[in-house]
């Protein structure tokens, strides 16, 4: 167990160094001359974040943009990578799949999560019921991939099934199905895994938002004779609009970046690849970093509207304040 101790020491040393750096910043800020102190504070407090972001995200983003216009030997090749992307059938399938993911996952996770949150609101055992659905959030995507690969496991009809879904098919007199091989529906079976993971997140946030709706409003609506459905659409949904936006945004960005699920379950075969997976495959396995970077740019463009929308919301709010 000497090994464990050594690793612990590394962790402690690292944290000590980090604490020392932060302490130094604080000291410098507090000792700065009075006239300069406010500025020093702003610089000192922002510097660590800005420096890290510059080297870790901004610089790479610039480099990738350049790479997207080069071939695998690093010489510029104009728009070739983009031409490849929009002419190769495989690449087109990848783009189509990504669109399916990005539409279906946020929609279904949020929909199911919201429905569930409403259904169990103030029900007995609400906490436990919530925990059950939230649990997949705590599982890694690789772990989730293993779980669902097991659910979808196929065996020939003559053998005993070990995957639950095929067993259910057999119980109902059907033939076992190669869930992960049959395109195009296999993409939906992969999407189901992501929905399974993200629903808990949507549910927890939305549930809390619902509980935050002032009682008086709900009460008034009830006295006005609104039924459950009317209450839901005219009171609940508008009141939690802000939470809905955050949930949809977060899940959408997460979905666009999804990579582990596809990689563990089909490795992008059988027409299931998505942009994030293809990006990795092209850049690292096929040694075509230019194509990988081009795909990354596409991903970037796909997320852009969502972020812009959120940025506008943010700006509006700050102006109100």
């Amino acid at each position: 167990m000497e090994d464990v101790g050594e690793k612990l020491v590394q962790v402690v040393i690292a944290l000590a160094i980090f604490a020392a750096i932060i302490a130094l910043i604080m000291l410098l800020v507090d000792r700065a001359p009075k006239t300069f102190r406010d500025k020093a504070t702003i610089i000192g407090f922002l510097a660590p974040a800005v420096v890290l972001l510059a080297i870790g995200l901004i610089w790479p983003a610039i480099q990738t943009t350049y790479l997207a216009f080069t071939d695998r030997n690093g010489s510029p090749n104009g728009m070739d990578n983009f031409v490849w992307m929009f002419t190769q059938p495989e690449a087109l399938v990848t783009l189509r799949n990504t669109l399916l993911w990005v539409v279906l996952v946020p929609l279904m996770s949020t929909g199911i999560g919201l429905a569930y949150a409403v259904f169990i609101d103030r029900a007995r055992g609400e906490k436990a019921l919530k925990a059950l659905v939230f649990m997949p959030m705590a599982i890694s995507m690789v772990g989730a991939g293993v779980i669902w690969k097991f659910m979808y496991t196929y065996r020939g009809a003559e053998r005993e099934q070990i995957g639950l879904l095929n067993q259910i098919l057999v119980w109902f007199g059907g033939e076992p199905k190669q869930f992960l091989l049959d395109a195009p529906e296999n993409t939906f079976f992969l999407i189901a895994v992501m929905v399974w993971i993200q629903t808990g997140f949507a549910m927890v946030i939305l549930s809390a938002a619902i509980k935050g709706i002032p009682t008086e409003i709900v009460e008034a609506a009830r006295l006005d004779g609104a039924n459950g459905r009317q209450q839901f659409f005219s009171i609940t949904v508008p009141s939690i609009r802000g939470a809905l936006i955050v949930v949809v945004t977060t899940i959408t960005i997460g979905t666009l970046k999804v990579f582990d699920i596809v990689r563990t379950m089909t490795a992008g075969n059988f027409e299931t690849s998505v942009v994030a997976n293809e990006m990795y495959t092209q850049a690292f396995r096929a040694s075509e970093p230019g194509r990988g970077a081009a795909l990354a740019l596409i991903l970037f463009l796909m997320v852009l509207p969502i972020v812009l929308y959120n940025a506008r919301q943010l700006k509006k709010q700050r102006e109100i304040r």
């Binding site: 974040a49 972001l53 870790g56 995200l57 901004i58 610089w59 790479p60 983003a61 480099q63 990738t64 960005i253 666009l256 970046k257 990579f259 994030a276 990006m279 990795y280 850049a283 970093p289 990988g292 970077a293 990354a296 991903l299 970037f300 997320v303 852009l304 969502i306 972020v307 812009l308 959120n310 940025a311 943010l314 700006k315």
Partner: peptide, 17 residues
């Protein structure tokens, strides 16, 4: 807002640099 927007940089892009 710029920092918020940095969420869109795909991780895969950032790795090698």
């Amino acid at each position: 807002i710029f920092i918020f927007a940095l969420q869109i940089v795909p991780l895969q892009m950032a790795l090698i640099p």
